[in-house]
């Protein structure tokens, strides 16, 4: 009865075109902007950069996808991208929000996951391991402090929309877990 949501490929659509060297450089700059709420990871590592196009001399369009539909960080992400590109000589920057295909936690890079764990946030499990359900319940989540898998869920919702609150039974520390989405 429960049909799994449409599982879209986690790879960016890249708008069907290959980037020019300049576009690649600008995309790298835009993607290096830190996430406003998880500043240990960049937007590229978070997997929210969907593309960049040079529309004309000094005119760039950036495509960004939200982690959650109501993510309040989206506006400051856009502002930060604009600032970085302005600073690198692009006067006109338009940041467009795209919803499709929906962002998933599988889009977070290996480096991004490593940095999350290093900062005390348990990274999300790969979604195929959660077998079709967007709400994984039985997976062991490893404590980012001591490495124990003896952890329990305190709340499905935490300091930001993308995280759940857990506690480690071994070391007693509470920690955030980046929910699988």
């Amino acid at each position: 009865m429960v049909t799994p949501g449409p599982s879209a490929a986690p790879t960016p659509p890249a708008s069907g075109t290959t980037l020019t060297p300049l576009e690649e450089e600008l995309l790298r700059l835009a993607g290096s902007v830190p996430d406003p709420e998880l500043p240990m990871v960049s937007l590229a590592e978070l997997g929210v950069m969907r593309g960049l196009r040079l529309l004309g001399p000094g005119r760039v369009e950036v495509e960004l996808t939200p982690t959650y539909t109501g993510c309040p960080a989206l506006e400051s992400m856009a502002t930060d991208i604009e600032r970085v590109l302005h600073d690198h000589g692009v006067p006109e920057v338009a940041v467009r929000t795209v919803l499709s295909p929906p962002w998933t936690t599988d889009a977070i890079s290996a480096e991004g996951r490593r940095k999350l764990a290093e900062s005390g946030i348990a990274p999300p499990a790969p979604r195929d391991a959660t077998a079709g359900s967007p709400v994984p319940v039985a997976l062991a989540v490893r404590c980012p402090h001591c490495g124990s898998t003896e952890t329990e869920l305190l709340s499905r919702f935490s300091s930001t929309a993308c995280k759940a609150l857990r506690r480690c039974a071994a070391c007693g520390e509470p920690f955030d877990h980046f929910k699988e989405l």
Binding site: G5, P66, S100, P102, P134, V135, F157, L181
Partner: peptide, 18 residues
Amino acid sequence: FAPLAAKAVKEVAYHRDH
């Protein structure tokens, strides 16, 4: 509504679970 629904259904799954 397909793009929004595909995105939001994953959020709502957590609401329903809660």
